[in-house]
């Protein structure tokens, strides 16, 4: 069993309303989201192809991964789209204290969570440079 510790991760104003930001906490990269009435934190890694969830568009209590538009519930960590995928991301408790966001971070190795993603997936059209 790993011990957990509340870490002062960022100042509230570091994270704009309805956006996320990634913070390195120990060996982990954690994406913290500002939902207006609360902050939520999840591993900054989409269970699909490890996309940076902190760069996604927030939709209510969900975030949409910028790589292939997987949708992840920020409270439960469950993947909400595609609907038939039963994987999830690790979630972390977060609270505000003196204008800072504190994230409860485990000090042990990363947790395995749920089932991993199936290989064949309907990917969205990639955004091509040119």
């Amino acid at each position: 069993m790993s011990t957990r510790k509340w870490i002062r991760a960022a100042r509230c104003e570091d994270i704009p309303l309805r956006e996320g930001r990634a913070v390195h906490l120990g060996s982990r990269v954690i994406a913290i989201f500002n939902l207006g009435d609360r902050f939520l934190a999840v591993a900054n890694q989409c269970p699909h192809r490890s996309g940076p969830l902190g760069d996604g568009i927030v939709s209510g209590g969900m975030v949409v991964c910028p790589l292939h538009a997987w949708k992840v519930d920020l409270e439960s960590g469950q993947v909400a789209r595609p609907a038939d995928v039963a994987s999830c991301v690790e979630t972390f408790r977060a609270r505000v204290e003196d204008g800072d966001v504190l994230v409860e971070t485990p000090l042990g190795p990363e947790q395995e969570c749920g089932v991993s993603a199936p290989p064949s997936l309907d990917e969205r059209e990639a955004i091509c440079a040119g």
């Binding site: 570091d14 704009p16 930001r21 913070v23 971070t105």
Partner: peptide, 17 residues
């Protein structure tokens, strides 16, 4: 547009693993 638009946020306290 925002102070952390491009900046990598560093935690406010050190974390010892």
């Amino acid at each position: 547009k925002h102070p952390t638009q491009f900046v990598q946020i560093e935690p406010l306290e050190r974390i010892s693993v």
